[in-house]
Design a protein around this nucleic acid. Structure first.
Length: 449
RNA sequence: GCGGUCGUAGCUUAGCUGGUUAAAGCGCCGCCCUGUCACGGCGGAGACCGAGGGUUCAAGUCCCUUCGACCGCGCCA
């Protein structure tokens, strides 16, 4: 590594001899001349083998796409007529003096930037993740996480990790994966860090967690996975759920600004636009949303406890048209529809201080104010037909005093997919798990593991 | 789990109301090419049409079963 020059640094090294290491992005064999585009983590550059050195030429002709190589060469300014406008390193090229093949490739199934069916793309992830498109997506995702963390840190939130192996299906909602545990016990994979983050409010007031959660639902849609990254927040001493919504709005604005600064090229490549986050995101009660939909479209779902996906898409289009917002908050879902810990609005009985945040047609967040009074929470548990005794561990936090609090859970993959207008959530997930896809071939090829 | 659509070379697809050697682009292999940059030109290999059964003189094309994929729904982030 000592004498390796990164491709992104070459422009500063005109006239110098350098060694670069990377992949062959593409080879263009012209007979007496062989051109290459080389790629490393910092960029791409063209290299050319000129006539003269026969053994070098022979090696050059044997090299194929995706070979991993170490290249010695001289950085040359390109003659005026060969400059590629608007292309990175389009004004320089590497005159190749030596090629060392570090790794060969075999039976490449298709070109990296070929248009693929999703199924093929996913079956070849170890290869397809090298594509420009995939690299751009996951760069953006990493920057979302970085910004999320940076903003919350700056607001005094403390990051923590919640356990993924838990004894009971504590929330009592959704399908849960079972895992054999010691001494005949059964453990479960966490569907959410919810109860732990509430406990953590008692310890640190403001907390957040970014971690994998598991859902055993046999869903098959473009917006569901059986394993996804939940970005959770919980904060104490709130007035009500609107405090939480305000923090989330500022956080999203911060993320959007950060993406504009750090990922402009990626958004261009993916033909997407960073959304403007309004200072105040439009908000309405579920009943208001349903009335609006009824009045505008005639579709009557006013008796339903929730919005259907089609309603959510419609509402987002409405918010975009009427308020120029890609986001819309829907609040006050019925108590019957929300988990036992959700705070009932004392001024609107039967409905909760809970909210969903819709972004470009999809729910990216569920949040709200929680029940913080011990007895009130016990009542909530009983109302759901659950046994408070089973929650005694969690209930300690409330028995021993916890402030009014609230928070949210946000799906990282959904957020990424919507920022980038990706049609399927699986494209925003490195190694997605669905009903059938769980990388069994990983272990079949490595039996010793 | 239910509903819809689909399954043809390594990849992406075309194959009309069933008709006999299954087509193209990209990739791959070979030859040619001194300025290409998704290089170009010529040639070549590569498909028992997801699997099983059925109807028919004849099935990639119609029917049934099965497996798989994608999309939608329920559920949710």
């Amino acid at each position: 590594m000592q004498d390796r020059t990164m491709i992104g640094e070459l422009a500063k090294k005109a006239g110098e001899s350098v060694t670069i290491k990377g992949w062959v992005d593409v080879r263009r064999d012209q007979g007496k001349l062989v051109f290459f585009d080389f790629r490393d983590m910092s960029g791409t550059v063209q290299g050319v083998v000129l006539p003269g050195d026969e053994s070098l030429m022979e090696t050059a002709k044997s090299v194929r796409n995706e070979f991993v190589v170490s290249i010695e060469g001289i950085v040359n300014k390109r003659p005026e007529k060969n400059v590629q406008e608007g292309k990175v390193n389009g004004d320089i090229e590497l005159e190749i003096k030596g090629i060392e093949i570090l790794a060969e490739t075999k039976d490449i199934p298709f070109e990296l930037d070929a248009e693929l069916n999703l199924d093929t793309y996913l079956d070849y992830l170890p290869y397809t993740l090298r594509s420009k498109r995939a690299r751009a997506i996951f760069k953006v995702q990493a920057e979302i996480v970085r910004a999320y963390r940076a903003y919350l840190n700056s607001e005094g939130f403390t990051e923590f990790q919640a356990p993924k192996l838990i004894g009971d299906d504590a929330e009592g909602s959704g399908e849960v994966f079972e895992v054999p545990y010691f001494y005949g016990k059964t453990a479960h994979l966490a569907t959410s860090p919810q109860l732990y983050k509430q406990i953590m409010v008692g310890a640190l007031e403001r907390v957040f967690s970014i971690g994998i959660v598991f859902r055993a639902e046999k869903h098959s849609t473009t917006r569901h996975l059986n394993e996804y990254t939940s970005m959770d927040v919980e904060m104490g001493f709130i007035k009500d759920h609107t405090d939480v919504m305000e923090v989330e709005t500022k956080l999203l604005a911060f993320i959007a600004d950060h993406l504009k600064e750090t990922c402009a090229a990626e958004f261009t490549l993916l033909n997407a636009e960073v959304p403007a986050v309004p200072t105040t995101i439009p908000r309405m009660k579920l009943r208001e949303a349903q009335a609006l939909i009824f009045n505008e479209t005639g579709k009557d779902s006013r008796e339903e406890p929730d919005l259907e996906p089609a309603d959510e898409r419609w509402l987002c289009e409405w918010a975009k048209k009427e308020h120029g917002s890609d986001f819309v908050f829907v609040t006050h879902y019925p108590v019957s529809k929300r988990p036992m810990y959700t705070y009932e609005d004392p001024n609107d009985l039967g409905f909760t201080n809970g909210f969903d945040l819709l972004f470009r047609g999809v729910e990216i967040t569920t949040g709200g104010q929680r029940r913080h009074d011990y007895q009130n929470l016990v009542d909530g548990i009983k109302m759901k037909g659950l046994d408070p005794e089973k929650f005694s561990y969690y209930l300690q936090a409330f028995k021993y005093g916890i402030p009014p609090h609230g928070g949210w859970g946000m799906g990282l993959e959904r957020l990424t997919a919507k920022f980038l207008n990706l049609p399927n959530l699986k494209e925003a997930t490195l190694f997605p798990r669905d009903i059938n896809r769980i990388d069994t071939r990983l272990s079949e090829t490595q039996p010793e593991e």
